[in-house]
Nucleic acid binder design. Structure first.
Lengths: 333, 333
DNA sequence: GTGAAAGCGCTAACAG
DNA sequence: CTGTTAGCGCTTTCAC
């Protein structure tokens, strides 16, 4: 049906091995034969089967990308970055949404293994005892991004969560707020724990006692952000300011604020982790920690590609630094 | 290295053909053998190679998904929907960003062909003469989503663009605005053209003459939205209201409005195509046309899956209906 | 009901 | 420098 390497070989009056060599850019082929092969390839419109190649070399030119949810805009440019890098190196990317669900993550890992992918970039659901060890066991390169894996020694690229949360919280403190709430992801995730830690440390450094009622940790989804904010706002002594530890939580929290017709920053100041394309469009603009999301994906893909190409150097742990973008949501600067 | 079908066969003391039959759920296998195979599979932790299978059956259990840019939130839930459906049917999805670039689209199509994907869902860059014909020629099922392909007879799922733009523009007219601008995607895309058409028809129906200076068509990116809006606002007679025909254009346009400290809706009313998670968070809330984006992806994937399973029925053209969400950006309702 | 054998399209020894 | 050959792991006739 479709044209194969032996069709080309026949037409060029050479063996298929020669065709393979020419196409792989291997040396030791006479110019004459090379030319014949090339014209035959063109005349026939031959495109090698990536599937057959994958079976033969026991490795497909595909990289797996497991994230928790593509609908979360944070992952969107990370995905884009990985895809861009992959494209440049003739890899395709298989996209998998794990939904923070360890079983789904495990299932996808089995699938990627069965597809014999060259490597995988993953935002691991859990920090320990996670299914990625199956990949390691199979010798498939893995790089963790956004979150760490404590019991697996793999290349990792994350952002400086503690420092930037510290900075953001300090910004709030600098405006005189003392009763500051925090809404973060779960303690089981790197980002949830570290961002809370930055917040706590900032309070401590300022000699402000942290209040249990003003800390909410839960699923990093809009719904939880909303409920957490609503709960706090309905406290007899609601917070004067809130620190939301990721984009979805921020959206949810703002919804609760908006619903109560509260004014930002007068009624409640807001400082948020994660930049979004509309943070400068609300009034006042949102003060945010801007993560280098595209770069995160780039670095991850680069590390992965390097491993795939055989780099056996020591494991790398890269930490990227977010920047603080100050707007009006915490009061006048 | 990894465990293969013959390892299982050996252990179960059967032929690999039998193992294959059992795993494929084929009938005509005695219970005894079936049992032996199943235990051997479990004991060995055997996972069939999807690559080998793909080569043998000349078709991989992968579906290709070509969109223009995953960074555009519109595509995000469409992608998610496709992935969800694929996952349920044991397909993996290969994500491709074409960037509205016909050559990149063509390259990706070749890649998908070489990967022998079972089918592809695509938001075609062009309406005619597009590279998807290569897929058709190869017998690979294709479904177009969001945009049509005029010269290729394939399953298609789009939204009612004309009608909803008409409705949105009429909403603006109903508030008494007469000088209404429009910022849309290029005339070469289904969405750009149809949405402009809805706008024009609404003006006509209301007996309002359309003004050339108030119509800007260009790349559906934030940057163009910004420039187009800026140009109009700097007109000696700027528009009283603006219709932005997609999410990115809206963001750009709002940036220009914001930059000039104009009040919505008093200085300029805004009506936008595409819902975003923050449209109710700005003040006033944005009046939008809400596309059923997830459903769009679902339907597309369903059509594709049906074709993959051999459905030869007539080509389907599905048109989904968006809803209008009225908030304050066009004035009091 | 079951197994033997062929072969999907490619690459990589190995010979020459 | 070039061709022959042997598989990669699976499915699918075709016999029995």
């Amino acid at each position: 049906m479709s044209v194969t390497i032996s069709d080309v070989a026949r037409r060029a009056r050479v063996s298929s091995a020669t065709v393979s060599r020419v196409l792989a850019g291997k040396p030791h082929v006479s110019d004459d034969l090379r030319q014949r092969v090339l014209t035959a390839v063109k005349e026939l419109g031959y495109k090698p089967s990536r599937v057959a190649r994958s079976l033969r070399v026991q490795r497909s030119n595909i990289i797996g990308l497991i994230i928790s949810d593509i609908q979360n805009p944070f992952f969107t440019s990370l995905v884009r970055a990985v895809e861009d890098m992959a494209y440049d190196h003739d890899y395709a990317v298989l996209l998998c949404n794990s939904d923070e669900n360890i079983e789904k993550e495990a299932l996808y890992i089995e699938l990627l293994l069965a597809e014999q992918v060259s490597g995988v970039v993953i935002t691991p659901t859990r920090e320990t005892n996670n299914p990625s060890r199956r990949l390691i066991a199979a010798g498939t390169p893995v790089v963790a991004v956004d979150r760490r894996m404590h019991d697996l020694d793999v290349d990792t690229v994350v952002v400086e969560n503690i420092g930037s949360s510290y900075e953001l919280t300090s910004h709030l403190l600098g405006h005189g707020y003392r009763r500051i709430g925090a809404i973060t992801g779960p303690a089981t995730s790197t980002t949830g724990r570290e961002r809370l830690q930055g917040y706590t440390q900032a309070l401590e450094a300022a000699g402000v006692e942290s209040v249990q009622d003003l800390i909410e940790m839960g699923l990093p989804k809009e719904d939880f952000g909303y409920r957490a904010m609503a709960t706090m706002l309905d406290l007899s002594r609601p917070p004067e300011a809130i620190f939301t530890a990721n984009n979805l939580l921020t959206v949810g929290a703002l919804r609760a604020v908006y619903e109560r017709s509260l004014q930002i920053p007068d009624d409640i100041a807001v400082a948020a982790f994660d930049e979004m394309n509309w943070t400068s469009l609300v009034t006042p603009g949102l003060t945010t920690v801007v993560q280098p999301t595209y770069e995160l994906g780039c670095k991850a893909a680069q590390l992965l590609l390097r491993r795939i190409e055989g780099d056996n150097g020591p494991v790398q742990k890269i930490v990227l630094t977010p920047t603080l973008c100050i707007r009006g949501s915490c009061g006048q600067h």
